[in-house]
Deep mutational scan, measured.
Amino acid sequence: NNDALSPAIRRLLAEHNLDASAIKGTGVGGRLTREDVEKWLAKA
């Protein structure tokens, strides 16, 4: 759900042209964290 994304995470996803639904969030309530996105980028 994009409503649950912080502005910083939205920007990070946009910079790398990523789809938030492709990344499993580990934050509160399954929210994406910066670490989630960075780990996903490291694997890609």
Results as ranks from 00 to 15, higher is better:
residue 16 H to M: 09
residue 24 K to Y: 07
residue 39 K to L: 14
residue 32 L to Y: 02
residue 17 N to L: 06
residue 29 G to M: 06
residue 4 A to W: 15
residue 28 V to F: 09
residue 36 D to W: 02
residue 13 L to S: 00
residue 3 D to N: 09
residue 41 L to T: 02
residue 28 V to Q: 13
residue 22 A to T: 09
residue 30 G to V: 02
residue 16 H to I: 04
residue 9 I to F: 04
residue 3 D to Y: 02
residue 8 A to Y: 12
residue 5 L to T: 05
residue 24 K to M: 11
residue 29 G to Q: 06
residue 17 N to F: 07
residue 13 L to I: 06
residue 12 L to Q: 05
residue 1 N to S: 13
residue 26 T to G: 03
residue 2 N to W: 05
residue 12 L to F: 08
residue 40 W to I: 11
residue 38 E to S: 06
residue 15 E to A: 14
residue 12 L to I: 07
residue 10 R to A: 10
residue 31 R to Q: 12
residue 13 L to W: 02
residue 40 W to P: 00
residue 18 L to A: 07
residue 35 E to A: 11
residue 29 G to S: 06
residue 17 N to T: 05
residue 15 E to L: 15
residue 42 A to P: 04
residue 18 L to E: 02
residue 4 A to V: 12
residue 16 H to C: 07
residue 1 N to Y: 07
residue 44 A to R: 09
residue 44 A to G: 09
residue 16 H to P: 00
residue 25 G to Q: 02
residue 7 P to R: 09
residue 33 T to Q: 04
residue 28 V to A: 12
residue 8 A to W: 11
residue 5 L to R: 03
residue 37 V to R: 00
residue 33 T to N: 03
residue 15 E to Y: 13
residue 12 L to V: 05
residue 29 G to E: 07
residue 22 A to D: 13
residue 2 N to Y: 05
residue 39 K to P: 05
residue 25 G to T: 04
residue 16 H to Y: 11
residue 32 L to M: 05
residue 34 R to Y: 15
residue 32 L to A: 04
residue 29 G to H: 07
residue 42 A to S: 11
residue 40 W to S: 07
residue 9 I to W: 06
residue 29 G to W: 03
residue 33 T to E: 04
residue 19 D to Q: 09
residue 36 D to Y: 01
residue 10 R to M: 10
residue 11 R to Y: 13
residue 44 A to E: 11
residue 35 E to W: 09
residue 41 L to H: 10
residue 42 A to T: 11
residue 30 G to K: 03
residue 42 A to E: 11
residue 1 N to R: 03
residue 17 N to G: 15
residue 3 D to H: 12
residue 11 R to G: 10
residue 25 G to V: 03
residue 21 S to W: 08
residue 14 A to F: 09
residue 5 L to F: 06
residue 29 G to N: 11
residue 3 D to L: 09
residue 31 R to K: 13
residue 5 L to M: 10
residue 36 D to G: 00
residue 36 D to K: 00
residue 18 L to N: 01
residue 14 A to H: 08
residue 22 A to K: 12
residue 20 A to T: 06
residue 18 L to V: 14
residue 38 E to A: 08
residue 10 R to L: 15
residue 2 N to G: 13
residue 32 L to Q: 02
residue 4 A to E: 14
residue 39 K to T: 11
residue 12 L to Y: 08
residue 28 V to H: 12
residue 18 L to T: 05
residue 31 R to P: 03
residue 43 K to V: 13
residue 38 E to L: 15
residue 24 K to T: 14
residue 11 R to W: 14
residue 19 D to M: 07
residue 38 E to K: 06
residue 27 G to N: 02
residue 25 G to M: 03
residue 28 V to P: 15
residue 36 D to V: 01
residue 10 R to S: 07
residue 35 E to D: 11
residue 40 W to L: 13
residue 1 N to P: 13
residue 20 A to D: 05
residue 41 L to M: 06
residue 22 A to R: 09
residue 15 E to M: 15
residue 8 A to L: 08
residue 19 D to I: 09
residue 44 A to C: 08
residue 26 T to S: 10
residue 15 E to P: 00
residue 36 D to T: 00
residue 18 L to Y: 06
residue 39 K to H: 10
residue 29 G to I: 03
residue 13 L to H: 00
residue 14 A to L: 12
residue 27 G to Q: 02
residue 10 R to W: 07
residue 39 K to W: 11
residue 14 A to W: 11
residue 6 S to G: 10
residue 15 E to F: 14
residue 9 I to P: 00
residue 34 R to S: 08
residue 13 L to E: 00
residue 11 R to M: 10
residue 26 T to M: 04
residue 6 S to P: 12
residue 16 H to S: 04
residue 4 A to N: 12
residue 4 A to I: 13
residue 25 G to Y: 01
residue 1 N to L: 13
residue 39 K to R: 14
residue 32 L to D: 00
residue 9 I to K: 00
residue 26 T to N: 04
residue 2 N to M: 13
residue 8 A to P: 05
residue 8 A to N: 05
residue 19 D to E: 09
residue 37 V to F: 03
residue 10 R to N: 10
residue 17 N to I: 04
residue 11 R to L: 15
residue 29 G to R: 05
residue 11 R to I: 12
residue 40 W to G: 03
residue 18 L to F: 08
residue 39 K to Y: 12
residue 8 A to F: 09
residue 24 K to I: 14
residue 23 I to H: 01
residue 26 T to E: 03
residue 39 K to D: 12
residue 7 P to E: 15
residue 24 K to H: 10
residue 39 K to Q: 13
residue 28 V to S: 10
residue 3 D to P: 10
residue 5 L to S: 03
residue 4 A to K: 10
residue 22 A to P: 03
residue 27 G to I: 02
residue 20 A to Q: 07
residue 30 G to D: 05
residue 41 L to E: 01
residue 28 V to I: 12
residue 29 G to T: 04
residue 20 A to R: 06
residue 2 N to A: 13
residue 43 K to I: 14
residue 19 D to A: 07
residue 14 A to V: 05
residue 41 L to Q: 01
residue 25 G to E: 01
residue 12 L to T: 03
residue 16 H to G: 02
residue 13 L to K: 00
residue 1 N to E: 14
residue 16 H to L: 11
residue 17 N to Y: 06
residue 15 E to R: 11
residue 18 L to R: 01
residue 14 A to S: 07
residue 43 K to S: 14
residue 6 S to F: 04
residue 6 S to T: 13
residue 5 L to P: 05
residue 37 V to I: 14
residue 27 G to M: 02
residue 33 T to G: 01
residue 1 N to M: 13
residue 7 P to F: 05
residue 18 L to I: 15
residue 36 D to R: 00
residue 22 A to W: 15
residue 11 R to Q: 15
residue 2 N to I: 14
residue 8 A to M: 07
residue 8 A to S: 11
residue 37 V to T: 01
residue 29 G to Y: 05
residue 39 K to G: 09
residue 40 W to F: 15
residue 27 G to E: 03
residue 19 D to W: 05
residue 41 L to S: 02
residue 4 A to Y: 14
residue 34 R to M: 15
residue 1 N to F: 09
residue 39 K to A: 14
residue 44 A to P: 10
residue 5 L to H: 06
residue 17 N to W: 05
residue 31 R to W: 06
residue 38 E to M: 13
residue 43 K to D: 14
residue 42 A to N: 10
residue 41 L to D: 01
residue 12 L to G: 00
residue 17 N to D: 08
residue 22 A to E: 11
residue 35 E to M: 08
residue 5 L to E: 05
residue 17 N to H: 11
residue 20 A to S: 07
residue 41 L to C: 04
residue 25 G to P: 07
residue 18 L to Q: 04
residue 28 V to G: 06
residue 35 E to N: 08
residue 33 T to L: 08
residue 11 R to E: 15
residue 16 H to E: 01
residue 25 G to A: 08
residue 23 I to L: 11
residue 23 I to W: 05
residue 26 T to I: 04
residue 28 V to R: 08
residue 19 D to P: 06
residue 42 A to Y: 08
residue 42 A to W: 08
residue 13 L to G: 00
residue 43 K to A: 14
residue 28 V to N: 09
residue 19 D to N: 10
residue 7 P to M: 10
residue 1 N to T: 12
residue 2 N to E: 14
residue 39 K to F: 12
residue 42 A to C: 04
residue 5 L to W: 06
residue 18 L to D: 01
residue 25 G to R: 03
residue 29 G to P: 02
residue 2 N to F: 07
residue 20 A to I: 10
residue 30 G to W: 01
residue 43 K to N: 12
residue 9 I to N: 01
residue 24 K to L: 13
residue 27 G to H: 02
residue 36 D to P: 00
residue 13 L to N: 00
residue 23 I to G: 01
residue 43 K to T: 14
residue 13 L to F: 06
residue 23 I to E: 01
residue 21 S to P: 06
residue 21 S to F: 08
residue 37 V to E: 00
residue 32 L to E: 00
residue 5 L to G: 03
residue 17 N to A: 07
residue 37 V to G: 01
residue 41 L to K: 01
residue 11 R to N: 15
residue 26 T to A: 04
residue 30 G to E: 04
residue 28 V to L: 13
residue 19 D to K: 08
residue 21 S to H: 08
residue 15 E to T: 09
residue 34 R to D: 12
residue 33 T to A: 01
residue 27 G to A: 04
residue 39 K to I: 11
residue 34 R to E: 14
residue 36 D to E: 02
residue 40 W to V: 12
residue 10 R to D: 13
residue 36 D to H: 00
residue 15 E to W: 14
residue 20 A to W: 07
residue 10 R to I: 15
residue 3 D to R: 07
residue 38 E to F: 13
residue 14 A to G: 05
residue 18 L to H: 03
residue 12 L to H: 07
residue 24 K to R: 11
residue 10 R to F: 06
residue 25 G to K: 03
residue 30 G to Q: 04
residue 37 V to H: 00
residue 26 T to Q: 04
residue 30 G to I: 01
residue 38 E to V: 11
residue 37 V to K: 00
residue 10 R to T: 09
residue 24 K to D: 07
residue 11 R to H: 15
residue 40 W to T: 07
residue 29 G to D: 14
residue 26 T to D: 02
residue 24 K to P: 15
residue 31 R to G: 07
residue 19 D to R: 05
residue 19 D to L: 08
residue 13 L to C: 02
residue 42 A to K: 10
residue 10 R to P: 01
residue 42 A to L: 11
residue 26 T to P: 02
residue 37 V to Q: 00
residue 26 T to F: 04
residue 30 G to T: 02
residue 13 L to D: 00
residue 4 A to G: 13
residue 16 H to V: 03
residue 41 L to F: 06
residue 35 E to T: 08
residue 5 L to V: 09
residue 21 S to V: 08
residue 8 A to T: 09
residue 28 V to M: 11
residue 34 R to N: 10
residue 28 V to T: 11
residue 38 E to I: 13
residue 8 A to Q: 09
residue 31 R to S: 12
residue 37 V to W: 03
residue 12 L to D: 02
residue 15 E to G: 05
residue 30 G to H: 04
residue 3 D to M: 10
residue 22 A to G: 06
residue 44 A to K: 08
residue 14 A to M: 09
residue 2 N to K: 11
residue 40 W to A: 15
residue 35 E to P: 06
residue 23 I to Q: 02
residue 35 E to Q: 12
residue 15 E to Q: 14
residue 2 N to S: 13
residue 32 L to V: 12
residue 2 N to L: 13
residue 9 I to D: 04
residue 29 G to A: 08
residue 27 G to D: 03
residue 22 A to I: 12
residue 23 I to K: 01
residue 44 A to W: 15
residue 25 G to I: 03
residue 36 D to A: 01
residue 6 S to I: 05
residue 40 W to R: 05
residue 25 G to W: 02
residue 24 K to S: 10
residue 42 A to F: 09
residue 14 A to N: 07
residue 25 G to N: 02
